[in-house]
Simulated scan of single mutants.
Amino acid sequence: MTVPKITTVTFRIKPEIKDALRQAAEQEHRSLANMLEVMIRDWCGRKKMTISQPASVERRT
């Protein structure tokens, strides 16, 4: 069974931007990482950018 890999991204942002992200995440009951992923996917969708999907997980029969 193949498990999709997750990568780490480290970057610096202004404290007020982090606070806004934290507030958005709390309102949506999401983690900071998941809220950021949702925001990026939304932005990419509006810009008609395709995000490749991980290879599907094979099922055992």
Rank of each mutant, 00 (worst) to 15 (best):
S56C: 05
P4C: 00
S31C: 05
K5V: 06
K48V: 02
T7G: 06
P4W: 00
L21K: 01
E26M: 03
K18M: 01
P15Q: 14
T61N: 11
N34K: 14
T8D: 04
E26F: 08
R60V: 15
E58H: 07
L32G: 05
F11E: 00
I40S: 03
A24N: 12
D42A: 09
I40D: 01
Q27V: 03
V57C: 08
I13W: 01
L21M: 05
R46W: 04
Q53H: 11
Q23T: 13
T50F: 08
T61C: 07
E37L: 13
A55W: 09
A55P: 04
E58S: 15
K47E: 04
S31H: 06
E26G: 05
A33L: 03
E26D: 14
T8L: 05
T10C: 01
E28H: 15
W43F: 08
I51K: 03
H29P: 05
G45E: 12
R12A: 01
R22P: 04
R30H: 10
L32Q: 10
E26N: 13
S52L: 04
I40G: 01
A33N: 15
M39S: 08
M1P: 14
S56T: 11
N34D: 15
M39T: 04
R41I: 05
K14Y: 08
H29N: 15
Q53R: 12
T2N: 14
V9E: 02
I40A: 09
Q27E: 14
